[in-house]
């Protein structure tokens, strides 16, 4: 019992105690950002690694969460219309925006919006037995459509630039180090709780059922289960996680824009999960953090070189280590014990 929880406990202590003490505020902010991505990755690990649904549109859910939060933050500032609306000549607050002045509504929508969208899409798609590559392509098309919609609705969404310049969250000054440290702790805490909950789910009967659906959807049907329901529910759970991650991301990073949630960022996270190890939830989290860090570190230094490196990395991981870093580690450990 203790041994099983030791790795998690160690990581939790480092993340919750050591990191805030040791890292300077800027680095801590970056880490908080990676942890937001890790929450999305956790959802991908659940939907894809366990359930076999390759979702290339998690950015959409992330974006719904992010934009909900951003709308609240813009309205909480007071002082009339949000800045970008003034710039694009909007004169009255659009009706869509009005309820987002309420933080409970905004946060609720950040999670329930993505869940609802995933439930509808999942029901329509999985019930018709659309799966595998077809599902992947549809989710990717959704991500592409979402970006074009956000860019086009300038007056509602801030267009290409999205929304930025947020000053306070629940009365706390976002520029303050203490606020950012608090935010970091919230993000790390949410990730920890979601990780434990997802792990519990994966180890439960539901988790077994999910793996069975992944490996033999039609066979599961003849065991008396409805695979479409199982997939839809799981997909919705992963969408909810992405939405929550988006809502946390906005105050941490201070911006939300279409470029953060389109086809490419959605795919990048899937690849991060593959690099970490898709079949292990820890692999998904690890992959997101490592790839996030690598991108920051390397794209600053090499710019174009980063794309070569990223491309080469995917090719290598997919060919040589399809189970990712976690899979490699497992293989090494087995090699040593035998």
């Amino acid at each position: 019992m203790i041994r099983r929880h030791l790795p998690f406990a160690t990581v939790a202590v480092i993340a919750l105690v050591a990191a805030p003490l040791l890292l300077e505020p800027f680095r801590l902010g970056l880490l908080a950002k990676y942890l937001c991505y890790a929450i999305v990755a956790l959802g991908i690990g659940l939907a894809w690694g366990q359930g076999g649904m390759l979702t290339l549109g998690q950015g959409v859910f992330f974006g719904l969460g992010g934009y909900s939060m951003a709308m609240y933050l813009k309205l909480a500032e007071g002082g009339g219309l949000p800045d970008f609306m003034v710039w694009s000549g909007v004169e009255e607050l659009p009706a869509l925006w009005v309820p987002f002045a309420n933080p409970v509504f905004a946060l609720g929508m950040a999670v329930l919006g993505p869940v609802a969208l995933a439930l509808v899409l999942g029901t329509l798609v999985f019930r018709q037995r659309v799966r595998g590559a077809y599902f992947a392509i549809l989710t990717q098309a959704l991500a592409a459509a979402m970006v074009i919609l956000l860019v086009g609705q300038q007056g509602l969404t801030g267009g290409t630039n999205g929304m930025t310049n947020f000053f306070e969250l629940f009365g706390q000054d976002l520029a303050e180090d203490s606020t950012q440290r608090g935010l970091y702790l919230v993000v790390a805490g949410v990730l920890g709780v979601l990780y434990l909950a997802t792990r519990q789910l994966v180890q439960s009967r539901y988790g077994r059922l999910l793996v069975a659906v992944r490996d033999g959807e039609d066979r599961v049907r003849f065991l008396g289960y409805d695979p479409a329901l199982v997939k839809t529910v799981t997909f919705a759970a992963s969408a909810g996680m992405a939405g929550l991650a988006g809502a946390l991301f906005v105050p941490v990073v201070g911006i939300i824009s279409p470029a953060l949630l389109g086809v490419v960022p959605s795919l990048e996270l899937v690849v991060a999960v593959a690099v970490g190890g898709r079949h292990a939830l820890a692999g998904a989290v690890l992959g997101a953090v490592v790839m996030g860090y690598a991108k920051t570190a390397l794209s600053e230094q090499f710019a174009g070189g980063w794309l070569y490196l990223q491309g080469a990395l995917f090719i290598l991981v997919m060919t040589l280590a399809p189970k990712g870093v976690v899979g490699l580690a497992g293989r090494l450990r087995r090699a040593r014990t035998t």
Partner: peptide
């Protein structure tokens, strides 16, 4: 592994 090809070829596409 058709779904893996997707990720693999995306790497190629980036390059």
């Amino acid at each position: 592994r058709p779904l893996d090809t997707l990720l693999l070829t995306w790497g190629v596409s980036l390059v």
